[in-house]
């Protein structure tokens, strides 16, 4: 049920359990998802159709009443701007939301994968009122349709704006017209010879 990626305790080689493991497993069992621990962040993957139910359980049964944020990550192999992925992934949009509790300050990130071409997911505004603006933002930035959202209109962008700016296929036009002046300052790009592994700052008092 649990996969523990890239964790500090694993790398030490000992069999100690990560302090968050028990908590992560508990949440995953309650909502029926898969728990992962990413550097202190508990992430529980759930299927898209359980999205609303997951949040309802989290709020009402697990006590995660604090709504932190909702957003999305687009996993795409072709990128118009920015750094491409090192190895091909399954193209999808990952919707993430983070909720927390107020007593102990624990938090958990829920994640689900939805289709990239026609992204649709149920809205959680009914559970967390604060998701309203976050979903509107994700709607205009990624083109995700949140079913059941009371007022799914653009939040930042002007009405009638074409495109979804945070999609990896959305170019930064000014960058295409004119190369970024900051490029000249970059001290060697990845893969350049001799750039890596040279300590930049020595211990001043050593």
């Amino acid at each position: 049920m649990t996969s523990n990626q890239s964790d500090v305790t694993e790398q030490t080689g000992t069999a100690t359990v990560h302090p968050l493991q028990e908590f992560a497993d508990g949440v995953a069992a309650a909502v029926g998802g898969v728990a992962e621990i990413h550097f202190g962040t508990v992430k529980v993957r759930v299927p898209a159709e359980w999205w609303v139910e997951t949040h309802r359980i989290a709020k009402e049964e697990l006590g995660f009443v604090f709504f932190s944020f909702l957003s999305a990550i687009e996993w795409a192999n072709d990128v118009a701007v920015g750094f491409p992925l090192s190895e091909p992934v399954e193209e999808r949009i990952e919707v993430i939301s983070t909720v927390g509790d107020l007593a102990e300050g624990r938090r958990v990130t829920f994640s689900t994968d939805i289709d990239r071409e026609n992204p649709t997911i149920a809205s959680i505004v009914g559970v967390y009122a604060g998701a309203n603006w976050h979903e509107r933002e994700a709607h205009e930035m990624f083109g995700i349709t949140f079913e059941g959202h009371p007022n799914l209109i653009n939040l930042y962008l002007p009405t009638g704006f074409v495109g979804h700016p945070l999609r990896k296929s959305f170019p930064l036009l000014s960058r295409e017209v004119k190369p970024w002046p900051g490029d000249v300052d970059v001290e060697g790009m990845p893969g350049d010879s001799g750039a890596a592994d040279e300590p930049s700052t020595e211990n001043p008092e050593a």
């Binding site: 990626q5 890239s6 990413h38 550097f39 202190g40 962040t41 992430k43 932190s68 090192s86 983070t98 938090r107 990130t109 001290e187 060697g188 990845p190 750039a195 890596a196 592994d197 040279e198 300590p199 930049s200 700052t201 211990n203 001043p204 008092e205 050593a206």
Partner: peptide, 20 residues
């Protein structure tokens, strides 16, 4: 010291996390 030893070009390994 006020600076850990880091490579000249900062590359963050594959991974994700939320820090608040």
């Amino acid at each position: 010291p006020i600076q850990a030893k880091v490579p000249k070009v900062i590359k963050v390994p594959k991974g994700e996390t939320y820090v608040r």
